[in-house]
Design a protein around this nucleic acid. Sequence first.
DNA 1: GACACAGCGGACAGGATCTGACCGCAATGG
DNA 2: CCATTGCGGTCAGATCCTGTCCGCTGTGTC
Lengths: 320, 320
Amino acid sequence: MSDPSARTLRLLSLLQARRYWSGADLAGRLGVSVRTLRRDVDRLRELGYPVEASRGVDGGYALAPGAALPPLVLDDDEAVALALGLQSAAGSAVAGMAETSVRALAKVVQVMPVRLRRRVEALRGATVSGWNPGEVADAVDPAVLTTVALACRDAERTVFGYAPPGRARTERTVEPHRLVSLGRRWYLLGWDLDRGDWRVFRLDRLDAPRGTGAVFGPRRFPAGDPAAYVRERIDTAWTRYVVEADVDAPADAVRRRIGRWATVVGERPGGCRVRIEGDDLDWAAAALVVTGAPFRVVSPPEFTAHVAALATRCAAAAAP
Amino acid sequence: MSDPSARTLRLLSLLQARRYWSGADLAGRLGVSVRTLRRDVDRLRELGYPVEASRGVDGGYALAPGAALPPLVLDDDEAVALALGLQSAAGSAVAGMAETSVRALAKVVQVMPVRLRRRVEALRGATVSGWNPGEVADAVDPAVLTTVALACRDAERTVFGYAPPGRARTERTVEPHRLVSLGRRWYLLGWDLDRGDWRVFRLDRLDAPRGTGAVFGPRRFPAGDPAAYVRERIDTAWTRYVVEADVDAPADAVRRRIGRWATVVGERPGGCRVRIEGDDLDWAAAALVVTGAPFRVVSPPEFTAHVAALATRCAAAAAP
DNA sequence: GACACAGCGGACAGGATCTGACCGCAATGG
DNA sequence: CCATTGCGGTCAGATCCTGTCCGCTGTGTC
């Protein structure tokens, strides 16, 4: 361990693996004298990573939170957990969070050893995403997601198969521009080389993407905000409904149980009104079932009919 | 940028920020000659990070997956996404995944700048966890989780408030030993200094934990496997039920929609039998509702009654 | 097949850096 | 008051690092 730069990296990882280190310990681990260790610590501090030192008996060093996040040194298990966590965060509904998660995920996956990638694949089967179950069928393969994200970041020409609804699968060659997450779907905005025009692709209809290795120069996207462009272009025909219902349970309790899917829009003693938006009436009904409380449908009429049908369905299910 | 170790770190981060770099670009960014850049690249390779180089026109450098994950250099947004992702992964049901996620999360949080930590806090409110809603009330505060995880890792004596069910909150001083995740609850196994014995604490009943700074020597846990010990000690009295039902929908479709909560235990043409385990009958009923298909309750009798009640509840809800 | 491009790596010399040793000093806690 | 532990100055010698120069080797294009 003679090389200073290797040692600096190693020191950083040691300081992340355990909080408190005595100077002698660290010096021993790095195979240098304490004096040199002190110099290394100084170097880290100059690089902006605040290493705190305490003197006296039980003194030692600890890496404190600083202005910037230091390079994270993670072991195998942690890396796998991270990849899985980011995958689930990629399905998050928070604006902007999904894109960022995918970016980070792509970064990690790019340099992740193959054996770890295999572990992630294997575990992904076991950990189903927490998405609205009605949408799981449309879920994007994380491998596709990260491949495309990397291609966007690196401006790398990409080939993939694409199957528009009702039409045959074709091969496309595209200069990927931006990934856009709308609702719970992912879209790729890119310049279609075969068509010679900007196109929007739904990621769940896209398969086997691979970079060609060819890097393209920056092509200006003319239409301003990519997200807005995608929003205009996509098929907004799928039924979108807004369900409202009165629930005979305190707003707090309701929020606790179904706050993820519903918003409380009105409150009264012992009850509240909730609104559920989505594109699956069964799901809305299920949410109201989970409250465990009596409720009354306010709107829309289709939902009233749906719940009535559900009543007979349940009655039949409980019949001997 | 004269210091080699700073430069090495920076090179690593550049290689993570973009995939392909030409030698000249990298040298320019680092403020050194191409020759020195080559030497730096060699250094990285010696450290075990496989930097691939390609020659000829459009040649350049790229960081490839190697034997070990290189230190990850993340920007602010990515770090926040990572923390949120790991938080949700900490609620994952996959064995062992939860513990690892928490460990990684603790590692990140320890060195995360305060401003980022605040952003994570703020966003956590917005992104509700994907847990079984029936359990959200028992959710552990991630701050508590990470603090305790760090204390375990660093063998740091810890003080916290603890409120056993039905008894008053008391202050405890503990040498934390292991975090155990069982079902969807978290437990801390530790040596209670006041009681002079090993104790198990439920993390959702624990508040305001803080390290005392005192590091304790390794105290051997005598009873073998901590997880088994905790499993024995905890209150297993909460009702646990197993619901089975026949659903008139193909197994594939059912799995796609409610695979997260139910397992398909039998298959027949056009239908299948599912099993749902948990501690909330409403939740099981909701899962069946989400299938959108007719079903029949097989067992247990309580559930038949529950579904019958649900039928009347729905009928009432749909009544004008 | 010739050519340009871009990475590879040897050699070299001057200068900068790094290291361990030794020193006294400054907090800290018992 | 004392042991412990980190801090930082100084020094000398060894080491390294850097830019320059050069010829070589793949790669893709014309």
